[in-house]
Write a protein that binds this DNA or RNA. Structure first.
Lengths: 156, 156
DNA sequence: AAGCATTAAATCGCGTACGATATAAATATC
DNA sequence: GATATTTATATCGTACGCGATTTAATGCTT
């Protein structure tokens, strides 16, 4: 028998394709590209759209609360929200009791964009080729993976 | 019984947390952050490291071939490779038979970096909290999801 | 061989994404 | 109640990542 290397499930992955980090990384880009043409019509970028989905679910969050949900830093979120404000989709208002906080609320224009989301989601779900049940399970798995990784990365 | 909305597995997800795109998106950032401190010691960024893993597997690829493996455009890859060249980890050489192509080869310094990768991979695998078997299955699932999405996005 | 389309990288402009730092407000400590 | 510490955003510098465009080389057609 030739000296072909046997790769068992117990070996650490070495090639890029076998690394979970790379797979997630490239899958992220794939979704970005899939959303792009649809979001272009709305004049939105992919991260802007994701930020809006959070506000559609719960309006009036502070920048920090949004960052927690989106797992983004204020250095990313502040400029993004300023662009959404310039586009007229959100308003940014300093808190009154605590003037350090900035609260983000949807404008009518921002709320109206929500109407497009079911079509977009449907289109993406279809592109995945997975059924809703399988997607739902995958979301739970990847979310737990992500949260585990975030926990060990925590800056306490 | 109150009019609480029932959500079945057949409903389209609406909240950010339930969208596969967002989950993948945030998981990508989580990995980026987890790798950051280790890669910092090597003077590498996360995308640079991923590009190197491809070259460790197969050296001497063209920019286009690397882009295909990494699912990145030349507009992303060219500047990244120039930085890796400036760091002394790769060399970029125009092809002789076809002068449009640029081939990327590892230098000794670039090859040496590979020695650090098992430790890094081990550390990341541990951070996921998943065993290798589960990770392997997840990689396959996410890769197929990604490829499905890329197929429908293809620019033919 | 000349002209035209195709291809591979590179360049450009814009928008993330981060860590490090700054600013300013709130809170804790003395 | 003045000072120190912490906290919430914002700013800055660097590096992606993409689509659109450019440049230069190759291939195709006649």
């Amino acid at each position: 028998m030739p000296a072909k290397k046997k790769v068992s499930k117990n070996d650490l992955p070495t090639s890029a394709g076998d690394l979970i980090c790379f797979t997630i990384y490239s899958a992220g880009h794939a979704f970005n590209r899939a959303y792009h043409p649809m979001l272009k019509e709305l004049g939105l970028t992919y991260p802007q759209y994701i930020a809006l989905t959070v506000l559609w679910e719960q309006d009036g969050l502070s920048v920090g609360e949004m960052g927690e949900k989106l797992k983004l830093e204020s250095s990313t979120l502040t400029p993004l929200l300023k662009r959404l404000e310039k586009l007229g989709h959100v308003a940014r208002k300093r808190g009154t009791t605590d003037e350090r906080q900035v609260f983000v609320t949807l404008t009518k224009s921002g709320r109206d964009l929500k109407k497009s989301s079911p079509d977009i989601t449907r289109c993406i779900v279809e592109a995945t080729g997975f059924d809703l049940k399988k997607l739902d399970a995958l979301v739970k798995t990847v979310a737990s993976l992500r949260d585990n990784v975030l926990d060990t990365t925590e800056k306490t």
